[in-house]
């Protein structure tokens, strides 16, 4: 029983220690850390309506559109 315990403790430790190292190694080798700009953009699909209301209180929709249009104009100016 005791030896099962030791095998378990060290087994789990090695498994998790190794898996985190493997994860880091995999990410480095696979270029996950090579282009941070692209990584940050990856969450936004190309066709996604950025800067358009995609989540808004049901009764504030019109106001929100005006706000966004105002912001767009402001930036243009």
């Amino acid at each position: 029983m005791i030896s099962v315990y030791y095998v378990l403790v060290f087994g789990i430790m090695l498994l998790f220690g190794a898996s985190i190292v493997w994860g880091l190694w995999w990410a480095l080798r696979g270029g996950q850390f090579s282009d941070f700009q692209k990584g940050a953009q990856s969450v936004l699909d190309d066709d996604e309506p950025t800067l358009r209301p995609c989540d808004v209180f049901p009764d504030l929709r019109e106001e929100y559109r005006k706000e966004l249009a105002r912001r767009a104009n402001e930036r243009k100016a």
Partner: peptide, 23 residues
Amino acid sequence: GPTLFHDEDAADYDRALRQARAD
């Protein structure tokens, strides 16, 4: 409306905003 992505005027609206943003 806005919670999903297919209201009628969305396309126009998007294009305008996207243009503004790209500029």
